[in-house]
Every structure is written in structure tokens, then in C-alpha cells.
């Protein structure tokens, strides 16, 4: 039986709509085909908004942002805080990243604009964040999912200083089903207002004992 953040979100939305969600497991590269072929009514699977598809698809408001975050250690002995601009946060700093990742690309772009900023590469985002906690680096850049999971596994060790990029995840429905799209939008409004989306994030991305 499928489980996960988006599976639970689908069930919560279905409950708002007064129906039962049936989860269909489809390869990531076939999701839109399944929607167009009416094999599914909606896609909730880490989709990004794609303006080129808006003739066939209606997208919801974002339910999660998986963008890149600039992270500091909570024990950092300096006066940087969440209000510092990104250039100040990186000046004279060692930046830990996952080698080859989008965070690495962002760090390399910023490096060319900042004085004495060095990049330390690690084989995973988790290792980059651990390096921050262990004092090997002063700053880390990683995606939101990796940061939330690390924060949960190591409570009180890191804090998010800046969001560097946005990567909002949205729900797609067929353009032939505008009433369903509208109902999902209303359901998302409710889930946001009642704190359910925050609860889902806490449960699936920051719990240390994931099922």
C-alpha cells in the first residue's frame, strides 16, 4: 500500500472533497500521459509548474517548496542572522555543498560574486550538512527536503538563513476537469488554513523515525 507525504496529501484532499482517493503508482516519466489518457484524475508527485502544458493541464497553488536553502549552524559564533543578505552570509566563509547538485551550482554562481568564499564538496547533502554541524564549514547550501530531514535527525543543530531558489510543487488536473481543479484548490486552501500542510511536512520530512 503506497505511503508518503503526497499519498497522505491526496487522501486529505479526497476527504475534503468527500470522496475516497485511489492511489495509482505510475513511473515519473509517464504521469502526464496517464492524466491525458484519463487513467488518473490528478497528479500529486513533485510536479513543477510548466507553462507549456497549460493548454492541457490546470495547476494548483503550490503545496510545498523544494528550493535551495542556505543553512547555518545554530552554534555559529558570529552575528549573522536570518536578516543578513546572502553576500554577507558567504563572505569569508566555507560553503558545504553536495558535489554536482543544484546547490553546488548555486554556490559556484555566488562564489564569483563574493569575496573569499570557498566551496567544500561532499558526496551527499547529508554529508554537507554534517560538515556544517562539525565545524568543517561555515555555511551549507542544500535542497529543502534534505535540510528538513537533517534538521529532524539532528534537532537544534542547523537553522535556515535564506531561501535561495524556489521550486514549488503543484497538483495537476486535466483542463477538461475545471470543476475538479477548483475543488482541489479549495481543499488546499482549507488544508493550509487548518495547518494540515505544516503537519504533513513535519510528519514526513522532519520525523526521525519514518515508517
Amino acid at each position: 500500500m503506497p505511503i508518503g507525504y503526497e499519498v497522505e496529501l491526496a487522501h486529505d484532499i479526497a476527504a475534503q472533497l468527500g470522496v475516497r482517493a485511489q492511489i495509482v503508482n505510475i513511473a515519473f516519466d509517464s504521469l502526464y500521459d496517464a492524466l491525458q489518457a484519463d487513467r488518473v484524475d490528478a497528479i500529486i508527485s513533485g510536479l513543477s509548474y510548466d507553462e507549456r502544458r497549460t493548454k492541457e493541464v490546470i495547476y494548483s497553488q503550490p503545496y510545498f517548496d523544494a528550493g535551495q536553502l542556505l543553512v547555518l549552524s545554530t552554534t555559529a559564533k558570529d552575528n549573522t542572522d536570518e536578516k543578513s543578505d546572502v553576500f554577507r552570509l558567504l563572505e569569508n566563509r566555507r560553503v558545504a555543498v553536495e558535489w554536482g547538485s543544484t546547490g553546488d551550482m548555486k554556490a559556484r554562481q555566488l562564489q564569483s560574486l563574493v569575496v573569499r568564499c570557498s566551496i567544500l564538496s561532499y558526496l551527499s547533502a547529508e554529508e554537507a550538512l554534517a560538515a556544517l554541524v562539525h565545524g568543517e564549514s561555515d555555511v551549507a547550501i542544500a535542497d529543502a527536503v534534505s535540510v528538513y530531514r537533517f534538521a529532524a535527525a539532528h534537532p537544534g543543530t542547523i537553522r535556515v538563513a535564506q531561501q535561495l531558489t524556489e521550486e514549488p510543487y503543484v497538483i495537476a488536473t486535466s483542463a477538461r476537469s475545471p470543476s475538479l481543479a477548483k475543488a482541489i484548490e479549495a481543499a488546499l486552501d482549507t488544508l493550509k488554513r487548518t495547518g494540515t500542510l505544516d503537519h504533513l511536512r513535519d510528519r514526513w520530512l522532519t520525523a526521525t523515525d519514518l515508517p
Binding site: 515519473f28 516519466d29 513533485g46 558535489w99 547538485s101 558526496l123 535542497d143
Partner: peptide, 16 residues
Amino acid sequence: NDHPRWIHAVKPAQRI
């Protein structure tokens, strides 16, 4: 490919 979710992808460091 180093997409974080695609089933046939690898880690970015592996891709390099």
C-alpha cells in the same frame, strides 16, 4: 541523469 526522484537517476556526484 541526476534527477532527485526519477527511478533511473543517480546522485549528482555519481553522474560526474
